[in-house]
Computed example of a mutant assay.
Amino acid sequence: MPESNLKALRRTDFEYTLPYRTRWSDNDQYSHINNSIYYHLFDSIVNTYLIESCGQEPQKSPSIGLVVSSWCEFFAPLSFPDILDLCLCVKRLGRSSVTYEIGVFKQGSDSPAAVGGYTHVFVDSQSRQSTAMSPAVRSGLEALLVTVTGKL
């Protein structure tokens, strides 16, 4: 379970930021971003980073990351047409697994509207057997590794 200090996180607690312009379809009937959309946002920032900074090519890389656990804690509503900053760090880095933490901030705010994350286990893209992450992936993820913030 996430710790209560997640709400105290700030942008500076994260190593990588990706802007996101909300869409009308992100809103639910209550006129705020639907909870399920946050997991799309998490997937977007993690995979953008893996592609841009770790050399991952989803259809060609010999190994891929599969999500084995995920979580999210909400602090403030967001809605279209908000512009967001998705902020990413790595909390744990193992031989074949990585745990990410993601802060979702309304652009211009230093307090998170939500904080969540998930754990990837890298597997062979054909056999789906656990495998060590490649040196390029490990190096890229090490650049995001932090030791003090939020959940872990």
Rank of each mutant, 00 (worst) to 15 (best):
D124G: 06
K60G: 01
L88A: 03
R95C: 02
E57D: 11
A114S: 10
M1P: 01
T12W: 02
G140E: 03
L66P: 11
E15D: 14
T149I: 03
G103W: 00
E3M: 08
S25H: 01
H40D: 14
P135G: 13
N34F: 04
D28I: 04
D43Q: 12
S36W: 02
P81R: 09
L93M: 07
I45G: 07
I102N: 02
Q107A: 10
S44I: 05
S127A: 12
V137Q: 04
V67L: 10
S125Y: 12
C72M: 01
V137R: 04
A132Q: 12
I102R: 02
S130T: 07
R138A: 09
K91N: 06
L86T: 01
G103I: 07
E52S: 12
L6F: 01
C54T: 02
E142L: 02
G140T: 07
S69C: 06
S44K: 13
T99V: 11
G65C: 07
V90C: 05
E57R: 13
I45A: 09
P112Y: 05
Q107S: 11
T48P: 08
L6W: 00
V104W: 01
I102T: 02
P58Q: 13
T131F: 05
L9F: 07
D110L: 01
V115M: 09
C72F: 02
D28N: 07
P58L: 06
S53P: 00
E3S: 13
N27Y: 10
K91H: 03
V121L: 06
R21D: 14
R21E: 15
T48F: 08
T12V: 14
T149H: 09
Q126V: 09
T22E: 06
G150R: 03
S125H: 04
R138F: 08
V98F: 08
L66D: 12
S4G: 12
L144F: 04
T99I: 03
R23E: 01
Y49L: 12
A143F: 13
D13G: 04
E3W: 15
P19C: 03
H120R: 11
S53H: 15
S111H: 10
Q59K: 04
A8L: 14
S53A: 10
V121S: 02
L18Q: 15
L84D: 13
E3G: 09
N27I: 06
Y39N: 10
Y30C: 04
N27R: 09
